[in-house]
Amino acid sequence: MDAKKLTRTALVLAPLALLVAGCGGGERSGDGTGLSGMVSIDGSSTVFPISEAMAEEFQIANPGVRVIVGISGTGGGFKKFCAGETDISDASRPIKQSEMDLCAENGIEAIEIPVAWDGLTVVRNPANDWATCMTVDELARLWQPGSTIQRWNQIRPDWPDEEIVLYGPDTDSGTFDYFTAAVVGEEDASRDDYTASADDNVLVVGVEGDAGSLGYFGFAYYEESSDRLGLVAVDNGNGCVAPSRETIENGTYAPLSRPIFIYVKPDALARPEVRAFVEFYLNNATVLVPEVGYVPLAAERYEEILDW
């Protein structure tokens, strides 16, 4: 008898679970702006904090629109974008020819919109008190493919005979592409005996824990963990320049300051919710970009893009 009752209990159990889960719905309508639909974004982890902030504020202003943001690296983001799976792709470097070809194959165009400046930041362990400044050439010798530099005194003889442990972003990352192009001189040319992670926090923790370590990632991450890391200023032939909001904006932090982008496809831009989101992005960039640790473009630039 008990058992029979249980059979019935089980039969209603699964649908019931669905019902319970379904209770979350019902708040799609009732927005002020009348916009609805979905904007899907994916791509660079460097641009993610900006897009996340925009998505959050946009949805507060337009409760009818759903904005989703994923992280799969600049390269991974373009793969989805060119497959038609996303409306907007976050990118920490310009789109590559091979990616444009892939998009073209699927009949997808991409409009490039610069949204902020980022400074690639080279960091060291705070216990390392010698490598406070390195030349671009030294960084290139250290990071080029097949580099045999394993100890600090191989870079400069007066530096201590300590092992260098390297940390950096993985090959799907736009930060990796940009750093190799700017420092080594050839895109994607890098030694591969370093700890690679798409998760910048892993790099922060790694450099923090290894006395002889050196790594690089976006400035926003450095700023959040500046008490745990030391900075390596970069000498591009004009003296040592450390990254800061000023030096990144005025371009003296060279060659490692770079613009970061979002890419939008025109088809998506024709949809009112995507258009509204992109306009919201540009209208609020001067406020939200610095809030999440990046350097905004000059205000006129955003207006120019909007006018276009």
């Binding site: 379904g22 949805q59 904005v67 989703i68 994923g70």
Partner: peptide
């Protein structure tokens, strides 16, 4: 399979992200 990182709405159907 691509579960997303930032979602600020409630799913209302099995086809939702």
């Amino acid at each position: 399979i691509g579960a997303l990182t930032f979602i600020a709405f409630s799913p209302t159907s099995p086809m939702d992200p």
